[in-house]
Design a protein around this nucleic acid. Sequence first.
DNA 1: GCCAACGTTGGC
DNA 2: GCCAACGTTGGC
Length: 150
Amino acid sequence: MKSEPDTYSYADLEADGSTYWEGVRNYVARNAMRAMKTGDRVFFYHSQMKPPGIAGVAEVVEEAYPDHTAWEVGSKYFDPKSTAEAPRWDMVDLAPVQAFEELVSLVELKANPALEGMAVTQKGQRVSVLPVTEAEYEEVVRMAAAKATS
DNA sequence: GCCAACGTTGGC
DNA sequence: GCCAACGTTGGC
């Protein structure tokens, strides 16, 4: 899951203890959230950074439910097409699990042949919530651990 | 229901 | 700050 750290960073998640992931306004991203189960691990990705990359691991503590910010007139996430009767957008709740000692950068993800098919490394990917396979998850965690001990 | 125009995302 | 990618919108 991508976030601009200037808006909401991994450190913010640690400070808050948990958060609701508001503002997803893309169907592919929404559907990815709907597929999440309580306890699922999530990579917290810092976008718009130099460099961009994965800052740590979070977990799903509440499965998808309507994103109320879509109903709030004046919110930057307001969407008149989403109603209480027919909510269009969902959010999940996340809690921090483990901050990586060092960011695992997008460049490093792309350079790892084991992650060739990982969604976030695919050219042109603009979706803010992307799937991660079990094997990709293990590989990224391994990369983070290797950086921490080097 | 097609598709051009438009807006946004996000790496570089 | 630029611009490619691509999702969304809206006219027809």
